[in-house]
Design a protein around this nucleic acid. Sequence first.
DNA 1: TTTCACGTAACATCTATTGTTACATGAAAC
DNA 2: GTTTCATGTAACAATAGATGTTACGTGAAA
Lengths: 147, 147
Amino acid sequence: MKRDSRLSMVLHALMHMAEHDHPMTSDALAKCLSTNPVVVRRTMGLLREKGLVRSERGHAGGWTIAADLSTITLRELHEALGEPEIFAIGHRHEAPDCLVEQSVNAALDGAFAEAEAVILKRLDEISLADLATDFARRHSARRAKKD
Amino acid sequence: MKRDSRLSMVLHALMHMAEHDHPMTSDALAKCLSTNPVVVRRTMGLLREKGLVRSERGHAGGWTIAADLSTITLRELHEALGEPEIFAIGHRHEAPDCLVEQSVNAALDGAFAEAEAVILKRLDEISLADLATDFARRHSARRAKKD
DNA sequence: TTTCACGTAACATCTATTGTTACATGAAAC
DNA sequence: GTTTCATGTAACAATAGATGTTACGTGAAA
């Protein structure tokens, strides 16, 4: 299965934007992310709908973050992306007639629901500010290594 | 993303097999599962490699469970299927040069690793015998409803 | 009015799962 | 022994979702 990497993508984009004090164009972001500017617009557009980022056209236009980094959580971003399926494993029929299949579905649903709660909780606990802190740590570690 | 439903499928098949005291053919199972007999053989073949089921050719041939229901866990079945990806969400590059991307990957990996541990633990705790018990409960509940 | 950048539709590509066809192999029944 | 039944397996088709691409429209600043 092909994994949805949009959450990873927007995080990567937002962190690069956080490092700049000017708007970043879709083209510039696309280069950072090794993707296509249209993909950037399409995906960042979902964040704009939730008021998380702004976009401006014309000269000196581009994308900017519209809120404090500490107030944006990974969970919010996940929701802004439309809460895509978290699991690559599932069952075929949602409401089967077969009692055997109902039993199987119930067991799997229980196990996955528990894991889903865990992951949503974790996503809720991590903000962009946390990522920025982690990045700063890695950044100075690399500088120290170079010197 | 298209979800892998093979775990659901083999569970469904095994429970039907558990209800029979004769081998079940791939054709019969395929009808239960609303799929194709070749898909059944392909998938059940993975379980056979782990010794969880047996297959016999010719007259009165078909598939049988090769172990006690209480000793087969969902986790074992997941492993027999080749431990397919659990998550539909991931990141693009496994070992990126970009420090920003490394930071993003680390955060997501942490969150998902925790959830993966939860789900594997749950799968380990559920056996086919548990499913059979649950099925029996549902079965008698339906009978009671009918009467 | 030209340039820049986003907005969006439409289409192409890629990839993984699932479904299908075809034929070989082996075992039991006759 | 030959027919029938069932699995084993390769090869290919269909499907679906994610991602990439092209093309053109719109608005803002130089």
